[in-house]
């Protein structure tokens, strides 16, 4: 891809005490691209995303979004620029019904800035969004409080909340974890639709098969270092990646 990247990560590092969680990681992401971030447990995937979204402050390095230096910005400011994210451990507002969880981002400064505060019937918009991510309208699941929803619905709710913010870049942190094969299969088309709508997506995943199917590019992290960057089939042929996943024979 050519042109100015939507997101540029330059020599990004983070250490927690003596542990180097992310070590001089650099990569670009262009508009409309789906980037998969994979790596063994503890390789620094989530920390990298936390650094990009401002939930963790970088020790060194830079993050540029649309050419603007957003390193160490607060999360709420980064969201307003158009980067939304989901969390591996979902945390909806448990006391609220699912559709109200989606109404709240519709009142966010980001959405207000885009639509000028006139959104019409936000309940209807929230219900449409939930239907889009797989909440069956007839089953009235959208009206149930989040605390009673099973994991599959909570993950879909997490996705709906991220989409409701009308972001340009969506970061999905292990969206598929804890889901059955059938549930994953039903979410993949939703992600593909988001790509068709022009969204840019970063997916952190352990479910490699599904990521490889839809990602344009994959980067691999190991012990905080970026060890491979390229198309899925190319990356998986990389000796260092094989070693990271399968272990060394030494």
């Amino acid at each position: 891809m050519s042109g100015t990247p939507l997101l540029q990560v330059v020599e990004l590092s983070k250490s927690f005490g003596g542990v180097q969680a992310v070590n001089r990681v650099s990569f670009d992401l262009h508009k409309g691209e789906l980037l998969g971030i994979i790596g063994p447990n503890g390789s620094g995937k989530t920390t990298t995303v936390n650094l990009i979204t401002g939930f963790v402050k970088a020790t060194s390095g830079k993050v540029f979004y649309q050419g603007r230096d957003i390193t160490s910005w607060s999360p709420h400011k980064i969201v307003r620029l158009g980067i939304s994210r989901t969390f591996q451990m979902v945390k909806p507002f448990y006391q609220l019904p699912a559709f109200k969880n989606v109404i709240i981002p519709l009142y966010s400064p980001r959405v207000k800035g885009l639509v000028g505060g006139k959104y019409g019937d936000r309940s209807a918009v929230a219900l449409d969004l939930l239907e889009e991510v797989g909440f069956e309208r007839d089953a009235q699941v959208a009206y149930k409080v989040a605390s009673v929803l099973p994991q599959g619905y909570l993950k879909r709710l997490e996705l709906a909340k991220a989409i409701a913010l009308q972001p340009d870049l969506i970061i999905l942190d292990e969206l598929f974890s804890g889901l059955s094969l059938a549930e994953v299969a039903s979410i993949v088309p939703i992600i593909e639709k988001l790509l068709l709508e022009g969204k840019t997506i970063i997916m952190i995943e352990h479910r490699l098969k599904e990521v490889f199917r839809i990602a344009h590019r994959v980067i691999v992290l190991n012990y905080g270092r970026l060890i491979a960057d390229g198309p899925a089939e190319e990356v998986m042929e990389n000796e260092e990646v094989k070693k990271a996943y399968l272990g060394s024979e030494d």
């Binding site: 979204t53 939930f55 709420h76 969201v79 507002f93 448990y94 609220l96 966010s108 980001r110």
Partner: peptide, 11 residues
């Protein structure tokens, strides 16, 4: 209810 979630909404 949850500060982290609220932050992700730009609050």
């Amino acid at each position: 209810q949850d500060e982290r979630t609220a932050l992700t909404f730009g609050i």
